[in-house]
């Protein structure tokens, strides 16, 4: 077994050309037409959220008593409501609230849920049991019921709505994270990191978290859809954004009484909710196919059914 040592694999097999993961994901998404449409809708949502008030042709509370219940026209593409306000402007401006509630509440759920799931999955045993049983308790309540209960305790308003929705979606992130951590934790590279003397915190942050990013990205995208839907539902029930601030859910509620005479009051905010939720779902599904075909989170579907 004595072979002179070629002092290197300098001339080793040619490495596969460098294709970054990001590049691969992009290429796959570009081939997926529905995902592209979804991304386009989300781009519109982001622009509306950022620049809504600047783009809106009318003020959100610009009452025009001479033009109540106007159907869609060139002046008012989405018509006017019972106070003569421009529905298009209100839908546009309300995008910011929806986006904000979605991002903040999912941000809360992500931060808290991932932390809990990471600790539970990494340490297992008693820690795992205690944390996950707490999550199960939260999980046992229907989404809206729990959110309504939280709003009832904390009082209505934008911040409460965000906190309530965040709490409601925390267990889903905790579960997805824990399941992924349990499998990553068994990988040899984690043992290898332990063998170098790395601390638990370092291993979780540097080795475990990046390796469970794929299912979390997918979950985030899907949860954004449901968070926006939940906000609309809360506002519809009068527990979310308070008038006269426009929100899609509230506008839907207001339009409810005029479905026969002024269908546009309810149709356009409803359509906005529908499109945004659909877009997040399509993009989330596409990301799931691209990033991790095995990871199917049934939790979300079961939860909101």
């Amino acid at each position: 077994m004595s072979v002179t040592e070629p002092n290197a694999e300098h001339a080793g097999p040619a490495p596969t050309p460098h294709v970054s993961e990001r590049g691969r994901v992009w290429a796959a998404l570009r081939r997926n037409k529905p995902a592209l449409a979804g991304l386009f809708i989300l781009a519109v949502l982001v622009v509306a959220g950022a620049l809504g008030p600047l783009l809106a042709p009318y003020g959100i509370n610009e009452v025009d008593a001479d033009h109540l219940f106007q159907g869609p026209s060139r002046d008012h593409p989405f018509g006017t409501d019972d106070a003569g306000r421009d529905v298009f402007s209100r839908v546009l401006v309300a995008a910011r609230v929806s986006l904000l509630v979605g991002l903040v509440s999912v941000g809360i759920a992500l931060l808290v849920g991932v932390t809990i799931g990471l600790v539970a999955g990494y340490y297992r045993g008693v820690v795992d049991n205690v944390l996950m049983r707490c999550m199960d308790v939260l999980f046992a309540f229907p989404v809206l019921l729990l959110a309504v209960a939280i709003v009832a305790v904390l009082g209505r308003g934008l911040v409460t709505a965000m906190v309530a929705i965040g709490v409601v979606y925390t267990p889903i992130f905790a579960r997805v994270t824990r399941a992924s951590v349990l499998s990553v934790r068994e990988q040899v590279f984690v043992t290898a990191a332990v063998s170098t003397g790395a601390s638990d915190w370092r291993i979780m942050r540097r080795h475990v978290l990046p390796n469970i990013a794929a299912p979390l990205i997918v979950q985030t995208s899907l949860s954004l859809a449901f968070a926006i839907l939940s906000e609309a539902a809360l506002s519809f029930l009068g527990l979310g954004i308070q008038p006269p601030q426009p929100s899609w859910g509230r506008m839907l509620y207001d339009g409810r009484g005029y479905v026969q005479d002024a269908w546009w009051m309810g149709l356009f905010p409803g359509l906005a909710i529908f499109l945004v939720v659909l877009a997040f779902n399509i993009v989330g599904d596409a990301l799931r196919d691209v990033l991790d075909p095995r990871q199917l989170t049934k939790d979300e579907a079961r939860r909101t059914a």
């Binding site: 040899v188 590279f189 290898a192 170098t196 003397g197 990046p210």
Partner: peptide
């Protein structure tokens, strides 16, 4: 774990792919 270090069997498993 600095004094004593370890080399593992399967290097494709023992290196973090990320």
């Amino acid at each position: 774990r600095r004094r004593v270090a370890m080399v593992f069997q399967d290097p494709s498993a023992s290196l973090d792919p990320r």
